[in-house]
Amino acid sequence: MSEILNDAIKYVENAKKSLLFIMKKNSETKKMNIKKFLVNKTNIYFIVDKHNNNICKIKNHSKAVLYFQNDLQCCDAFKNITVIGELSQVLLGKEFYSILKIMLNRYDIVRRYIKNGLFEQYSIYKLKPESIRLTDYIETLEEMKEII
């Protein structure tokens, strides 16, 4: 993995929230905040409410964009990461339980969902990146750098 990609993954892992944009076939875009996510290799996994109208009707292999920007960054080091890729729901199985185990260790709220029998109201989704773009507003005025 390249050093730039490693830095991008670290940047995403340090982010506290993300914005998800789902592109529908009718050119409609749905936006939602994502607060519980993790990076596993280059895939990004996140948990959302099954009843959220913005995501519950998506089909596997939908195009989506996750936008990460760290809240506490200084103006002299302002950058963001945009991940564009294929969005799909993670169904019960090895991948699901592997990601859930990592989420349990990272987010207390996920542990509470399970303890209180509420996790069945949530789904895990995966964004498989097709491109990762770094925008560095300070170093250069270039639009974006393609990482992958």
Rank of each mutant, 00 (worst) to 15 (best):
M1L: 10
E3S: 09
E3T: 05
L5Y: 04
N6E: 07
A8K: 05
K10R: 03
K10G: 01
V12M: 15
V12F: 05
N14Q: 12
A15W: 09
K16R: 14
L20W: 10
L20V: 08
L20T: 09
I22H: 02
N26M: 06
S27A: 06
S27M: 07
T29L: 12
K31R: 06
N33D: 03
N33M: 04
N33F: 09
I34N: 04
K35G: 12
F37L: 01
F37I: 01
N40C: 07
K41S: 05
T42M: 05
N43R: 08
N43A: 10
N43L: 03
I44V: 07
Y45S: 08
I47F: 08
H51G: 07
N52W: 02
N52Q: 07
K57R: 08
I58L: 05
K63T: 12
K63I: 13
K63P: 03
A64L: 02
V65N: 12
V65K: 11
L66T: 08
Y67S: 14
Y67F: 15
Y67T: 07
Q69M: 11
N70Q: 15
Q73L: 12
C75F: 14
C75V: 13
F78Q: 10
F78K: 14
F78A: 15
K79N: 10
N80R: 08
N80G: 07
I81R: 00
I81M: 01
V83E: 03
I84Y: 08
G85T: 09
G85Y: 08
E86S: 15
L87T: 04
Q89E: 15
L91F: 08
K94Q: 08
E95H: 00
F96T: 06
I99W: 07
I99A: 06
L100P: 00
K101V: 01
I102D: 04
M103D: 03
L104M: 13
N105C: 07
N105K: 15
N105Q: 11
N105F: 11
I109K: 12
I109R: 04
I109N: 05
R111E: 12
R112G: 00
R112Q: 14
R112P: 00
Y113T: 05
Y113F: 15
I114G: 08
K115R: 14
K115D: 13
F119R: 03
F119C: 01
F119K: 00
E120Y: 14
E120N: 14
Q121V: 03
S123H: 06
S123C: 04
Y125S: 03
E130C: 10
S131E: 11
R133E: 13
R133S: 04
L134K: 02
Y137W: 11
L141K: 15
L141M: 10
L141G: 15
E143P: 03
K145L: 12
K145S: 12
I147K: 01
